[in-house]
Design a protein around this nucleic acid. Structure first.
Lengths: 344, 344
DNA sequence: CGGCTGTATGTTATCGCTAACACTTCGCCG
DNA sequence: CGGCGAAGTGTTAGCGATAACATACAGCCG
């Protein structure tokens, strides 16, 4: 059997193949492909041509092992179907794009155990940074993060102590401010409708802040309703119906997210309720979807893209930070009164 | 300076650290951590204890290089904000979970150039398979895929020739069937509202199939309207308003996706139009959101989870396929008439 | 009790690439 | 015109793990 023009096609190409095809050393090929060091124009052309015509794709595994550098950033979030996280990812990608870093996404489904294993898996690839949602993590996760020796940014929340850096808003404060606005508008029989998830700490903190401010005005929640899973829009409807049946005199519905809020709003409008006169509504997150609703739901912007951007700046060392350790960036959520709270 | 109990904490731990801490060879540690080969119970315990107490996280980069095996599967999709792709990912993850493989997601924003660079980046990590949306790719992408020597599954679409395997539905057929149902219900002045994106090939194919069937009944589109970017729900409203103003006598609105369809539906109901009597509507995808709408939009299920599942089975070699090369799996989209098409 | 089998462990040689340094040529200056 | 710096290229030695083979030590049989 004679030597074929291309060696065994099942074997992946290596630097050596390119080096042989172009008549220079592997090192020079490596330099050309990474744009590093001095290489003459003629050699560069030769090498690039050979690499392209062979269809060579560098092996980053070997490269990373040799250089002890990995251009990946782990991003760990609870869910993709939440609308919220794609926005954060957009912010992250926008910044990372011109740093040579690349985000790798892991999803936990709000489970601390899954978070731990996703984190373990990610760290085993030795990323140059990690961004993860929330401040609550298993003990093992925290110790992995500190051991890892790379920047870790906890995002979305600042109510607590981060392992390293944190970027987010205070959900307690968001809850308090929303309660304040609702009370100021004159509503008094207020119900909460939200997720059941024991691990949605941010929704929990918003509720805590919310009730705290109600209490200061001598109020307590008139009713509360929780859900898990399913189409959020539909759940919003169903929960709203349940609350209105059970507690007909409520005058305000505070939802833990915009999606169920939108469902509730559609339901109220169908029922012919006077919104915001007889009934006020508010959600949380300021998702795009709201723009298309018959009426703009009151909500609070969670600064999602901004959070992503800043987190990415921190992991990529782009931030003009003087300090050695982590930094905490608290953003301010903006109340969007929309059309579902009475004007004062 | 004396030797500290733990060596330089900035240096990441290696097998050697664990091996020294437990008094066995690196090889034995490696065997324990991978559950491979025969290791005595006593040694296993010793090693596991040492690894845990040190907080050792294996270096998969080195492992992958040595074993020439990478437990990653690249998944390349156009967008995360589309609602569609998270479902596909769910299907993929569900299957991969018990194969030891892990999906890594890349997003192209419907740009062939970005697709090419995302693919290049992924292949440079030598994944054990690639799943990517659509059958249309740049020449370079196709050649990378064939060269890579790993299973490649093109998903969502089967109208065309795949590089290796394909799993999806025929969008031409979906368009034809929807047109058939609409005509059968007696609608005649039909408009199309959809994405402008030149690279949304699947929407294009649906429209082609749709017009084809219209033509067979001697019909042509009464109007068409396109959009790019923005909140899809809002765009659906705006486009619908534009069409109704421009062509008041249309009696059916066919949307390229459910989200804009939902916006259109809300608009029509607000205008007090008789749906589905005076005006019929249909979308595409059967997204969850529809469950919460005042009326159920007619749509067609794109079998998203199923597609993800089967694609994952193919890349993981779980499929009882006899053939050597790729296989093509065509799923059948199901028409969901909902409440926005007249019953015949 | 020699030799054989099998279990439990250690040794050696990569995997494909890059850091660090060594080595040529030049050109240019004193 | 000898020497020195810079530009361009090559050589060597790992990076941290695993495959494949080698070894050690039981137990067991004829």
């Amino acid at each position: 059997m004679t030597k074929p023009p291309h060696p065994d096609p099942r074997r992946a190409l290596t630097l050596r193949d390119v080096s042989e095809a172009s008549g220079v050393s592997e090192m020079t090929v490596s330099r050309v492909l990474r744009n590093r060091g001095d290489v003459s124009g003629a050699t560069r052309e030769k090498v690039l041509h050979a690499a392209r015509s062979l269809g060579y794709v560098p092996n980053k595994i070997a490269g990373a092992l040799a250089s002890q550098r990995v251009n990946l950033v782990g991003v760990i979030i609870p869910s993709l179907s939440n609308m919220v996280f794609p926005d954060v990812l957009t912010g992250i990608s926008a910044v990372l794009e011109d740093t040579g870093l690349q985000p790798v996404v892991g999803v936990t489904n709000y489970s601390p155990d899954r978070e731990e294993s996703v984190l373990y898996e990610m760290l085993s690839w030795r990323p140059s940074g990690v961004i993860l949602a929330g401040l609550e993590h298993s003990e093992a996760s925290v110790s992995m993060l500190t051991q890892a020796g790379v920047p870790a940014v906890e995002i979305m929340d600042v109510d607590g102590a981060p392992v390293d850096s944190a970027v987010g808003i205070s959900h307690r404060r968001a809850g308090r401010e929303m309660a304040g606005a609702i009370i100021a508008a004159g509503y008094r029989r207020i119900a909460f409708l939200g997720t059941m998830m024991p691990y949605d700490h941010r929704a929990r903190k918003r509720l805590e802040g919310f009730e705290e401010t109600l209490a200061k005005s001598g109020l307590v929640l008139a009713d509360r309703e929780f859900y898990t899973g399913g189409s959020a829009l539909l759940k919003g409807r169903e929960m709203t119906e349940a609350v209105l049946r059970r507690t007909p005199d409520v005058d305000f519905l505070y939802y833990s997210n915009d999606m169920i809020g939108a469902g509730g709003l559609l339901y109220c409008l169908e029922q012919g309720l006077d919104v915001p006169g007889r009934m006020g509504l508010a959600g949380f997150n300021n998702i795009d979807l709201l723009d298309g609703l018959p009426r703009r739901l009151a909500t609070m912007d969670a600064c999602r893209k901004e959070i992503g951007r800043i987190a990415a700046e921190i992991v990529s060392g782009k931030r003009p930070t003087g300090q050695v350790g982590g930094e905490i960036v608290e953003l301010t959520p903006r109340l969007q009164p929309g059309d579902t709270i009475r004007k004062v």
